[in-house]
Amino acid sequence: MSEEIQTEKKRIKSYFIVFGFLVILALVNVAVSYLHLGGMNIAAGLVIAGVQALLALGILMHIFWEKKTIHHLIGLAILFVLALFLLLVASYFDSIGK
């Protein structure tokens, strides 16, 4: 237990570093939305949001230190969402009947 407490004490600093990054990235995302980059605007916005999500998942939700069972569960969820998006893209570009 005391080892667990020591580990937690060390992690507190990383929580606040992540907080700083999340705030900065949110501001960057807003700034990017006012630039005229054409179709790249939304791509840049989603990449920035993706980095924010990774930081929140990895550090705040402890994914980087979690057991394999959790990694497998998350992997499965991401796989299903990707399959959902793939179906969407496939249906959008489907030319049958056009």
Binding site: I42, I48, A49, A53, L57
Partner: peptide, 21 residues
């Protein structure tokens, strides 16, 4: 807390898709 972080995570994507781009 894990649920709360997840709700925050969803907002991280909602904000740019609905407000910004």
């Amino acid at each position: 807390g894990l649920f709360w972080h997840f709700v925050d995570l969803v907002w991280i994507f909602l904000f740019p898709t609905l407000y910004l781009f």
